[in-house]
Simulated scan of single mutants.
Amino acid sequence: MSGESATRTAPRSTGAVKGPVGSRTGQRLSGLAVALGLALFLGGFGWGALIYRPYTVPTGSMTPTIGVGDRVLAERVDGDEVRRGDVVVFKDTTWANAPVVKRVVAVGGDTVSCCTDGKLTVNGKQIDEPYLAPGGPAEDKKIPTVEVPKGRLFLLGDERHSSLDSSAHLTDAASGTVAVKAVQARVDAVVWPMNGMLKRPTGFEELGALSSPGPLGTIGLMIAVGAVLVLGGGAYGPVAKRLGGRGRARTEPAGVR
Rank of each mutant, 00 (worst) to 15 (best):
V112P: 04
G109F: 07
R103C: 08
G124R: 01
T93Y: 02
A106V: 13
V122K: 10
A98R: 15
T93D: 14
P99L: 10
V105F: 13
E81M: 03
G108A: 07
D86L: 01
S113W: 05
A96W: 04
A98G: 05
C115L: 11
V87D: 03
K91M: 15
G79I: 08
D78Q: 10
R84W: 00
V82I: 13
D128G: 04
G108Q: 06
A96V: 02
G109R: 06
G124A: 04
G108W: 03
D117P: 00
V101S: 11
V107A: 14
V89N: 07
V88T: 11
V82W: 04
D110R: 13
D78C: 02
V122A: 13
G118R: 05
L120S: 15
V104S: 06
D128S: 12
A96Y: 05
E81G: 00
D92L: 01
V105K: 09
P99T: 07
V122I: 08
V100R: 08
Q126D: 14
W95G: 00
V101A: 14
K125P: 02
V112L: 10
G79H: 14
G109N: 07
A106E: 13
G124W: 02
S113T: 12
K119F: 02
L120G: 11
R103N: 07
D110H: 11
V101E: 13
K91A: 08
Q126Y: 02
A74G: 02
A74M: 03
K102H: 14
G118V: 08
D128N: 09
P99G: 08
C114S: 15
V105G: 11
I127E: 03
V104K: 12
V87S: 02
V82A: 06
G79D: 12
V87Y: 02
P99N: 13
W95P: 00
V101T: 15
G108H: 03
G85N: 01
P99I: 07
A106F: 12
G109A: 10
V100E: 10
D117I: 00
E81F: 00
Q126K: 15
D78S: 15
V104W: 09
V122Q: 14
C115H: 11
D80R: 12
T94N: 01
R103P: 05
I127D: 02
D110Q: 09
G109D: 07
V105L: 10
A96K: 11
G85E: 01
R84L: 01
V88Q: 09
G108E: 07
